[in-house]
């Protein structure tokens, strides 16, 4: 934690309102991007954001001085998003059998290099909920398959196949744009 962050955290522990607002303003832009990635609609993103920050303010006592504030905020938001989506019942639990993904080769780390990030964001948000969550957690947050499997209560192989499907869908949506460019 950076010194100015730990200062802010201390003030937030005292329930200092100004400090809470400062913390919010510091993290709002990056966290809102995260929330948008996980949700289909802007209203859902705002709900997750709201619940996540309330949770952060409530539990800021548990944050140790050695922890990274950014990583802590992120994990709170991810957890909030997951439980939100679960509560919304939009979380369709369809376990996809590992169908043949052999034809899927188009995606690699640089697949979307030339595509505008707003368009990628839009495509991610169009993904089916489970694929969206898995893609976000693995590809953009850096969780391992096992961690995601544990958090979502599914098997690692289900994580894998959801990820593959997500990637394929993204490529299908974004590849034409790339060609057009």
């Amino acid at each position: 934690m950076k010194p100015e962050e730990s200062h802010l955290v201390k003030a937030c522990r005292r329930k200092d309102r100004r400090a809470q607002k400062e913390l919010y303003e510091l993290f709002a832009p990056s966290m809102f991007t995260l929330c948008l990635r996980y949700t289909h609609t802007d209203e859902d993103a705002m709900d997750v954001m709201h619940d996540g920050f309330i949770k952060a303010f409530d539990n800021i006592d548990q944050l140790r001085s050695g922890d990274s504030l950014t990583a802590w905020m992120k994990s709170i938001m991810v957890n909030t998003a997951i439980s939100h989506l679960r509560r919304e019942k939009r979380y369709v639990d369809v376990d996809i059998a590992d169908e043949s993904l052999s034809h899927f080769t188009a995606y690699d780390d640089n697949a979307f290099d030339e595509i505008d990030i707003e368009l990628i964001m839009k495509a991610i948000r169009q993904l089916p909920t489970r694929q969206r969550v898995v893609f976000n957690m693995v590809e953009l947050e850096g969780y391992t398959y096992e961690e995601v499997a544990e958090q979502l209560g599914i098997t690692s192989s289900a994580v894998r196949s959801n990820l593959m499907r997500a990637k394929r869908l993204l490529v299908e949506q974004l590849a034409p744009l790339k060609l057009n460019n």
Partner: peptide, 11 residues
Amino acid sequence: NHNTQPDPEVW
């Protein structure tokens, strides 16, 4: 590195 300013309504 991509930031999105949320609606002030959120705060």
